[in-house]
Design a protein around this nucleic acid. Sequence first.
DNA 1: CTCAGTGCAAACCTTTTGCAATAGT
DNA 2: ACTATTGCAAAAGGTTTGCACTGAG
Lengths: 140, 140
Amino acid sequence: MHRSLEGVEKRLRSRGRRMTAQRRAILEAMATLGCAQDAEAIYARARRAHPRLGLVTVYRTLDAFVADGLAQPVFLGDGRVRYDLAQEGAHHHHLVCLTCGRVERVDECHLPPPRRLGGFRVTGHRLELFGYCPDCRQQR
Amino acid sequence: MHRSLEGVEKRLRSRGRRMTAQRRAILEAMATLGCAQDAEAIYARARRAHPRLGLVTVYRTLDAFVADGLAQPVFLGDGRVRYDLAQEGAHHHHLVCLTCGRVERVDECHLPPPRRLGGFRVTGHRLELFGYCPDCRQQR
DNA sequence: CTCAGTGCAAACCTTTTGCAATAGT
DNA sequence: ACTATTGCAAAAGGTTTGCACTGAG
């Protein structure tokens, strides 16, 4: 993980940003927790490494990461924004359990996105799959 | 549109719900405005037909419609929930302009959703396409 | 030394809830 | 009549902003 941290630091610097203890803690939290975590979860985890961290800083940092292409927002429709660390080969989707809310990462993408569609130039897409996880499937 | 309104009314009744002037106004607003409109937009439009309508009623009605399968929520990541009227053959996706926010409906779905994936039973999906609409494409 | 980043408190905005009044059936 | 539905006001919940202070480069 330290290797990618260096890359991240370089990327931040190139955009006039600074590497701080808070940002390191947030990056580590995101890497540890995995994809599609919300600000609160990242905050709780990052606080272990940096107890003085404020929730507001998490929000501002996530905004900055998204602006710099280091993170991507994920919307699962539960009223909060979740975030993925934008790593190499990062294009992926999410599989969400409708019962317990568990989120799995799905790496295959069978979508050949058309470059043109109804006059639009299509540049990207988001796909979320919904269903029932092994645990919740049994209880039905 | 009156034909489908009757179907809607029947559906509501079968679930112990009542058809009110407010609900008619909201249904009409949704049908007129098209897909992926938020509560505020539906409220503004429905108020033309029923000026005494309250925004809270729109929220509660939309919740009820979703619970009854008459509407579906759409999440485009702009911090508000949007709604589609669930009509026949309603499965569709959205094409969103990253510049102006314009939303087009996309009826083709090239996604053969796998029934099983990583232990999950997959029952549905949401796909949103992003890009630039004809107007905004020119300005670049 | 300079300015990006931080923390706190307060503001914001969308959505939800409590409750008494209203209106379908 | 019975009770689902409504409207208002207030609360809730996630996110953003103002401002003075801190600290990376």
